[in-house]
Structure formats: C-alpha cells, structure tokens
Design a protein around this nucleic acid. Structure first.
Length: 290
DNA sequence: CAAACTACCTGACTGC
DNA sequence: TGCAGTCAGGTAGTTT
C-alpha cells in the first residue's frame, strides 16, 4: 500500500530514468485509470505524444511529471499502483493499464508502464500543472516537506474535536500519511488515535508529528536502495512492511515496548492497531446533561 | 460547514 | 471442489 515513502521512491526512480526523453507513443489499455482525464483516453494519449518530461515532483501521495510546456502528467498509485520502467519487449504485466513509450536521443527505447491491479489509482493530464497541479490544490504539504508548518498543524489539531488519527488521514490537514504510518506514528508517540485533538497537549501533537516523520524516513531509507538498475524499483512497495512495523498488523502480538498484546479495533471501515497500555484509550466523553 | 458515510475496485483468504 | 462472503484502504462525492 503506497504511502508517502513508497511514492517518494517511485518519484526518485522516475527522476532518474524518464526525464528528457520524448514520448513517442501512448497506449491506454484500460479506461478506468485515466477516468480523471475528462476528455477521454484518446485525448490523453494524443496530448502526451511528442512531449518530454522535465521534472518529477510529489506532494503527499500524489506525484506528477512536469512536461516541457507547463502541463503535467499527474498520477496517484491508489492502493496497488506501480510505475515501472521497462525495455520494450518485456512481457506485459498482468495488470498493465497504460504504456508510454519513450525514445531517448541516444540509447535504447524505454517504456514507462502504469500497472494497477485494483485501479484505485490513475493518471491524468493536468493543464498548467507543472509546478503544482490545480487538481491537488486542496492537498496539504506533507511532514517531510521543508515548508510544512508544524505550529499551524498543532493549532489546527487543537482547535478540533476530531480524533487525531482521523486528522492524520485527512490529506487536507497533512498529506502522505496513510493507515499504516498513522498507526506507527501514534504508537511511537504513545498517543491513542481516538483522542480528540482538542484534548491533546502541544507536546503530544509534536510527538505524533515526529513519530510519523521517523517511521516514514525509516521506510524511505529501506525502500530507496537501488533504482539505477533498469527494471526499476519504481513499484510502490518498500521492504519496510514485513520487517519494521511495531503495531500495524500485529494484533495479539506483544508490544515491542511493554509486551502487552497489540489490539485491533475497527475504524473508518478499516483497522487500527495500538498498544492498550502505551496508548491508553481515551475515556468516553459523556454528552453534556440536557 | 464540518463531519461522517459510501462507492469504487480486484484478489487473497476463510468458512461451509 | 466450489462458491459466497469478508477484508484490504485512498479518494471523491454524497449525505447528515
């Protein structure tokens, strides 16, 4: 499940491999991943053909490839998306959805392939989106962005009665954090995800932020190992998941800090994992007497 | 107007 | 063996 670190690894791989090579053809094999391109698949293909990528950028879990004329190819990996850089002739992946053929001035042809089993992700051509696509103007900066405003985040959290995990997952407040890293960051900070923002101290919120940063930087360090071989590791998977998670997916296993079994609860149609001792469940707030 | 809910998708897995 | 049901979860759109 690609969250910020996985998307950043993909961005680094794209930056290393696809910039400066004219797009010679575009093939859309399934309409759904280009559904956000309202003019349709044929227009999507026609408008990309002949153009060249000049930069690979990211905000949160969105990434985009700037084009030489100020537009951009905007992408999101959704739940299962991958960007693969392949030589032509390598057999198509089972869930290959879009193929961009690139023709470098010198050197062999390349393909940028968008592969996505579940098709929650997608690609679109963003008019004027080279610097920041207008389609994602509502997406907040992510905690690894040097311009992320910690004190504004703290203020916003403390002015809301929403649970802290809900706010971590709200990409309009802070981007890049998904269910997995939210649980890990909260575990590191020893804060329960259902504690209302308004009842957290400044220090609590700062610990949550730094917890999220820590776990995302660790994942990035593990996932960003080698992408200069072809058959790029531009795939939205980091080796982080199985190895280093402390809480997520570890129901009934001992908390690495105190040994208490990790608990799982339903949350927003998904799961939350936490240590009931390190991260005490907030006392249920009683409604004011009528 | 913010918060909460639902649709979108496929494949791995579980239980009968 | 087969098949229905459940789960995974980011985002946008809808409802409350």
């Amino acid at each position: 499940m690609p969250e910020l670190p996985e998307v950043e690894v993909v961005r680094l791989g794209l930056e290393a491999h696809v910039l400066g090579h004219p797009i010679s053809s575009v093939e859309v094999l399934h309409p759904r991943p280009v559904r956000r391109h309202l003019a349709g698949a044929a227009d999507f293909a026609a408008r990309l053909t002949g153009r060249t990528f000049t930069a690979a950028r990211r905000r949160g879990k969105y990434l985009w490839l700037a084009l030489d004329d100020g537009d951009a190819l905007l992408g999101h990996l959704g739940m299962s998306g991958q960007m693969l850089v392949q030589r032509p002739g390598v057999p198509d992946e089972r869930h290959l959805r879009v193929r961009l053929s690139l023709t470098p001035q010198d050197g062999p042809e390349l393909e940028l392939r968008f592969v996505d089993q579940r098709m929650f992700g997608g690609l679109a051509l963003s008019d004027g989106g080279a610097v920041l696509p207008p389609e994602i103007a509502h997406i907040a900066r992510d905690p690894l962005d040097e311009d992320f405003d910690d004190s504004a985040f703290v203020r916003r959290v403390r002015h809301s009665d929403s649970g802290i995990k809900r706010m971590l997952l709200n990409q309009g407040i802070v981007s890049g954090v998904g269910n997995i890293y939210a649980d890990e960051g909260l575990w590191l900070a020893r804060v329960h995800g259902e504690r209302p923002g308004s009842r957290l101290s400044r220090a609590d919120i700062e610990r949550v932020l730094s917890g999220c940063r820590q776990v995302m930087l660790e994942a990035l360090a593990q996932g960003g190992t080698s992408f200069d071989a072809l058959y790029v590791n531009v795939n939205g998977q980091s080796g982080y998941f199985d190895r280093s998670l402390k809480a997520y997916g570890r129901e009934s296993e001992p908390c690495p800090r105190c040994g208490t079994p990790i608990r799982r609860i339903a949350f927003m149609n998904r799961s939350s994992y936490f240590c009931p001792v390190c991260q005490p469940v907030p006392r249920v707030r009683r409604k004011p007497a009528a």
